[in-house]
Write a protein that binds this DNA or RNA. Sequence first.
DNA 1: TTAAATGCAAAAAGTTTGCACACGC
DNA 2: GCGTGTGCAAACTTTTTGCATTTAA
Lengths: 135, 135
Amino acid sequence: MRMTNQREIILEELRNTTSHPTADELYLRVKERLPRISLATVYRNLEKMAELGLIQKIKTSGYQTRFDGNPNFHYHIRCIYCGKIDDLPIRPIKALEDPEHIELDGDLGGYKVVGFNLEFLGICPECMKTLNNKK
Amino acid sequence: MRMTNQREIILEELRNTTSHPTADELYLRVKERLPRISLATVYRNLEKMAELGLIQKIKTSGYQTRFDGNPNFHYHIRCIYCGKIDDLPIRPIKALEDPEHIELDGDLGGYKVVGFNLEFLGICPECMKTLNNKK
DNA sequence: TTAAATGCAAAAAGTTTGCACACGC
DNA sequence: GCGTGTGCAAACTTTTTGCATTTAA
């Protein structure tokens, strides 16, 4: 992978935030430093960097894809009200990560299991506050 | 909720398949019986029926939303090659479903956890066959 | 020097919405 | 008869792509 200025700055901005931004949020940040960059470049680079394992793509259907500058596996929690994603500091879940701990209740229909996607859902402190005020 | 003909047939077709169709796949099926139905009606009704708990909306993993005529909680597996979703007959995972079993490694950042999304990833029998033929 | 990357604009894909009309209760 | 639901088309949102030009190695 060629290290272009755009690539460097996209990665830098993503690494410098804990907010798991969407492609267009990151585009806006990067644009402050590279005013002529295009959104397509941001998409193309995030895609490539995710493939190479430099960053993580957080895909949950129905919402915009978000990106995480931390390439190490960890769990996320999504606020059901505002959609924000945060890291969740929980220990690996044995029942998922060691496939032999999965308790079957039938057969797997011929599938070979290769992994899983897990995200927690919750209410973030800000939305919780808003809810309490409404009462 | 008013029981219109469209609503009845959409629900019927969804209940009669195990294929977890997308809105447009279901639209095509329903169209055979109601040629003048519109895709918007299918979307509106699926949305409403999911809210009421008559069906499930499967939003995980950055692909098109799929729908499940079975309203009871169960796990799904998605084929990483063809995107197909099937039911996975595994027992409830204690470490997820009883929040007190979650082993924290820090604090939750003020979130109130209300649930989770989990899908397994795998290779379906058909795609497995294709892979083997290519070797 | 040259293959890979970029910017731009347009297209694609999936979903939602405004509105006039139709229909279940 | 009232108000919800429908069909249609157009809008919208997110992401991808074609192409001419630029740039890192």
